[in-house]
């Protein structure tokens, strides 16, 4: 089984951290994984995206041309990548910033009020972690325990104080029947 995830948004939204934490968790689960970021000046304020592939077997290329899961954190990202999602694929939408649903009818869309949920816990800076929590709960690609472990390894030392807040953010989203 191979999962291809594409995380996209604008620079500063913590897109890379989402991908990295998921990749980290997959490694802790004993899976093969690759993480490939976009890079260059665009990271500083422009669009940012990263690809994560999780597999039981060796991964040849880390480049994604067709994603099983798209995580769109802003509307330009949805515009840009919607057509690259597999039929029956999952499209996660940051409803706080995206005013539309996917145009395609052959994908499953999950809308997450990332910013509102993040503000309920602390502030909008952890909106990315709220979204990551939704991706993990909905897709079951990695175990929630491993994501927690990834979080603890990533936020070691001086950053340790941020762990509880991020743990809360991870479990902020609950699937409701109204989701489409």
């Amino acid at each position: 089984m191979t999962h291809r995830l594409l995380f996209a948004g604008f620079g500063g939204q913590g897109i890379m951290l989402m991908g990295e934490l998921l990749a980290y968790a997959a490694m802790i689960d004993g899976k093969q994984v690759t993480y490939m970021p976009s890079y260059g000046p665009e990271m500083r304020g422009g669009t940012a995206n990263c690809s994560v592939i999780v597999s039981d077997g060796p991964i040849a290329s880390p480049i994604i041309t067709e994603a099983g899961i798209l995580i769109a954190m802003n509307e330009p990202s949805l515009d840009k990548f919607e057509d690259d999602v597999d039929p029956e694929g999952l499209v996660f939408i940051n409803r706080s910033l995206i005013g539309r649903k996917p145009r395609r009818s052959d994908v499953v869309s999950v809308a997450v009020d990332c910013i509102e949920l993040a503000r309920d816990i602390l502030n909008e800076k952890i909106a990315n972690i709220v979204m990551l929590g939704a991706v993990i709960r909905k897709s079951n690609i990695v175990s929630p325990d491993s994501v927690g472990e990834a979080l603890r390894r990533k936020f070691s030392g001086k950053k340790e104080a941020f762990i509880p807040i991020n743990e809360s953010a991870l479990s902020a989203w609950r699937e409701r029947s109204e989701e489409h």
Binding site: Y35, M36, Y39, P62
Partner: peptide
């Protein structure tokens, strides 16, 4: 190349 430099793998 930039791909190997920038990507992450276990």
């Amino acid at each position: 190349d930039g791909m190997l430099g920038q990507m992450m793998e276990p």
